[in-house]
């Protein structure tokens, strides 16, 4: 599926919830389901330092596509990460670079991207794109 299609899918899922509790219970469940990163891979070079919650990101390329795995010590952060991975992992680098990941905004999670939350998500998106753009320029 294309990035936009997965984003639409997530938008539809969230349209079912009418209060914050249901929305966050869903995010928390996704956080709990996110496959854990092998602790041996939670090294400092994969750590994206946020002020409060820590995020680890690992990127690999396979057949011209980028595969991401990630983890966080905070469960809400992890739930949002799991959606970012669902949308961006397995996509072509050029498409990852161009994606605006607007779904986060649309499902009412914009506050998690504000600098005051300092949860490492903004830098995680930057890192995901940075890795994709580096790979894209390597290829060309």
């Amino acid at each position: 599926m294309k990035i936009e299609e997965i984003e639409d899918e997530i938008r539809e899922e969230f349209a079912l919830f009418d209060d914050w509790e249901d929305r966050y219970n869903y995010i928390i469940d996704m956080g709990k389901d996110l496959p854990l990163i092998d602790p041996a891979l939670k090294t400092d070079d994969r750590l994206i330092k946020g002020c409060q919650s820590r995020v680890w990101l690992r990127a690999e390329h396979q057949d011209g596509k980028i595969m991401y795995t990630a983890d966080s010590d905070a469960i809400i952060t992890k739930g949002i990460i799991s959606m970012l991975i669902r949308v961006l992992s397995g996509q072509k680098p050029e498409e990852i670079v161009q994606s605006q990941v607007t779904f986060i905004d649309d499902i009412g999670l914009k506050e998690h991207l504000s600098p005051t939350r300092s949860n490492g998500l903004v830098s995680m998106i930057q890192h995901m794109k940075h890795y994709a753009s580096q790979y894209a320029s390597l290829k060309s």
């Binding site: 966050y24 928390i28 919650s53 010590d73 469960i75 809400i76 952060t77």
Partner: peptide
Amino acid sequence: GAHPYDVGFILDK
């Protein structure tokens, strides 16, 4: 078993 960030967030809600 809970990260302070998550707790603070749910309290804010």
